[in-house]
Each structure stands twice: as structure tokens, then as C-alpha cells.
Amino acid sequence: MSRIPGLEPPYAPEIQRQFDRIMHGAPPLRLFVVIAGNARAWEKFRAGSLLDGGPLSLREREVVIDRTCALANCEYEWGVHVKIFADAAGLTEAQIRATALDGADAPCWSESEQALITVVDALHARATLSEAEFKALSAHYNEAKIFEIVLLCGFYRTVSYLANGLDLPLEENAARFPVAA
């Protein structure tokens, strides 16, 4: 049970339409049900969504999200994204594992993905980028992608705060953090 209870079905028609649009007819995630219980929070949350067809590839987007959630120790959101998007994003088991356990220099990542993960790590640790980190990122990603990367890091840090702070129970079918060997 979450620290703040969510909406109970049947949902108001507009909320149900919103859930259906986001979830493509599948039952809504606990995160959505809990946030939707507060109209202002739900409106702001939906306005900040970055799961549309933005400038990043699905793979790039998911590397950023998975790494951000793992660094924030948010198994809830990390597990949802791994379950729903990892296969479509072409992430291998080693890469999924590396988002939670390894550094940016893990051999499973390309040079551009290493720059991406380095930036996620820096933003998480310091909320800024060094000139060298920005230069390495700029060598692989244009301005539109850089904005998206920074926005994703911030948005999913917020999602992690919500899921962790409200103590959301893990989704039944979501992935679980890997255990270090």
C-alpha cells in the first residue's frame, strides 16, 4: 500500500480516458493511480511527460531513464521501464544490468552511450556538467538531444522521488534490480 492511497475504480470518465491513452488499454500503473488522486499533481505530471516521439531514439531515452532511476534507487520506475521498453530499445541483459550496477566505462556500452551515462551520473551527483563532460556529450548528440537528456534526468529524478517517497509497492510484473555478483 502506498503512503497516499490512490484512486479506486471505477475511475471518473476523463481519468479513465487519460489512463487508456497512456496505458493503451492496460490497467494503470500504481504511480498513475496515486498521482491522479491529486488533480493538480496529475495535470502537472502529465504535462511534463517525455515519453513522446522526442529527438532521442528509444534506446537513448531508455538508457537515460534506467540509469537515472537506478542512481536514485527507484526500483519501481526502473523495473517498469525495463519490463515495458528494454526489448524494444534493444538493451541486452548485460546493458540492463549495467544501468544499475556498472560505471559508464562498462564494455557493453558504445562510445556515445558512455558519454550519455557519464552525463546522467554527473547530473545525479552534482546537478551540473564539467566542460569535458559537455564536450564529450556534444560530440555525439545535438542541442535538441542534449536538452532532452537533461530534461529526462530531471523528470525521472522527480518520478523517483514520488515512487520512493510515497513507498509505492512494486508492480507485479516489473523487473527487479539485479543483484551484484
Rank of each mutant, 00 (worst) to 15 (best):
R30H: 11
N38Y: 04
A100V: 01
D20Q: 09
S112V: 01
R30P: 02
G90D: 04
P13R: 03
L58D: 09
L116H: 10
E113F: 00
Y11T: 02
L51F: 12
V33W: 02
N164F: 04
G48L: 10
V34H: 09
P13V: 01
A127G: 14
R61T: 09
L31D: 11
T128R: 00
V64W: 03
R157N: 15
S112A: 09
R176K: 13
A144K: 08
N73H: 14
A94Y: 04
S2I: 01
V82H: 05
E8Q: 15
L166R: 02
S112C: 04
T128I: 01
D121I: 00
G165I: 03
F177N: 04
F155G: 02
A104T: 03
E77I: 06
S130T: 11
A12E: 10
A72H: 13
G103W: 01
C108G: 06
L31W: 04
V179T: 12
N173P: 14
P13I: 00
F85H: 15
E172L: 01
A106I: 01
A86V: 04
G79Q: 05
L162H: 07
A72M: 08
R21N: 09
Y76P: 03
E148A: 12
L123A: 12
D66N: 14
A106C: 05
E43W: 09
Q18F: 07
G25I: 01
I117T: 05
M23C: 15
A12K: 15
S49T: 07
P27H: 15
E75T: 08
A70F: 05
N164C: 08
F45E: 14
A115P: 07
K83M: 12
R97Q: 07
R176F: 02
K135H: 14
K44F: 11
R3P: 14
S112F: 00
F85D: 15
K145N: 10
S57L: 06
L170K: 15
A181Y: 01
A122Q: 04
F155W: 12
Q114V: 01
A88D: 08
R126W: 11
Y11S: 00
S49A: 10
A180Y: 06
G103Q: 06
P55R: 03
K145W: 05
P9G: 00
A139C: 08
Q114R: 00
F85K: 10
F32W: 13
F32M: 11
R46M: 13
G37D: 00
R40A: 10
T92A: 04
A94P: 15
L58C: 07
G37I: 03
A12Q: 14
D102V: 01
G48W: 02
E75H: 12
I65P: 05
L162E: 13
E111Y: 00
Q114I: 00
D167Y: 08
G6Q: 04
G6T: 03
A47F: 08
A115C: 05
A144T: 10
G90H: 10
